[in-house]
C-alpha cells in the first residue's frame, strides 16, 4: 500500500515537471503547418531570429529564395510570400512538393554546414 502511494506520488511529480517544462517553451515558434491537412508529424520547431543569429544569416533570400525557370534569382527574395504559394502539396515540374521543399531547405543546409538538426525527430518533436 505504502509502495503504491509512493509510486503514484512519483508519477504525479514527474508529470507536473514535464507539464511545466513544456510550458516554459512557450516562446518557441513552430513552422506553420496549417497548409497540411491531417499532418502526420508535429510542426517543426523553428525560432526564426535565434536561428539566424546563431547561423549568421544576414540575407533573407538565403532561405526565402526565388526560382524562375529552374534558375535561382540571386537578387530576389520571397519573405513576403508563403512557401506554399509556390510549393504545392504535390511537386509540379521542377518545383518540389512543399514537404520536400522544407526538408531540402532546412536539412539540406544543415548537412552542408554540418550544423543543426538532420534527423526527423530533431525538428518534429513528439
Amino acid at each position: 500500500m505504502k509502495k503504491a502511494a509512493v509510486f503514484i506520488f512519483a508519477i504525479v511529480v514527474v508529470s507536473a515537471f514535464l507539464f511545466v517544462s513544456a510550458y516554459s517553451q512557450e516562446e518557441m515558434t513552430f513552422v506553420d503547418n496549417s497548409v497540411f491537412t491531417k499532418p502526420e508529424r508535429t510542426p517543426s520547431i523553428f525560432r526564426h531570429d535565434e536561428h539566424n543569429e546563431k547561423a549568421g544569416i544576414e540575407e533573407c533570400n538565403e532561405c526565402h529564395h526565388v526560382y524562375e525557370d529552374g534558375k535561382l534569382l540571386e537578387d530576389e527574395s520571397s519573405e513576403d510570400q508563403r512557401c506554399s504559394d509556390c510549393h504545392e502539396l504535390k511537386s509540379s515540374g521542377n518545383t518540389p512538393a512543399l514537404i520536400k521543399a522544407y526538408h531540402t531547405n532546412c536539412k539540406g543546409c544543415h548537412l552542408k554546414e554540418k550544423k543543426g538538426p538532420i534527423m526527423c525527430g530533431e525538428c518534429h518533436l513528439k
Binding site: M119, G121, L125
Partner: peptide
C-alpha cells in the same frame, strides 16, 4: 524507440 523519442533520440536513430 527513436520514433517515440523516449530516450536519447539521436543515439537510437
Amino acid at each position: 524507440i527513436a520514433y517515440n523519442q523516449w530516450i536519447n533520440y539521436q543515439l537510437f536513430m
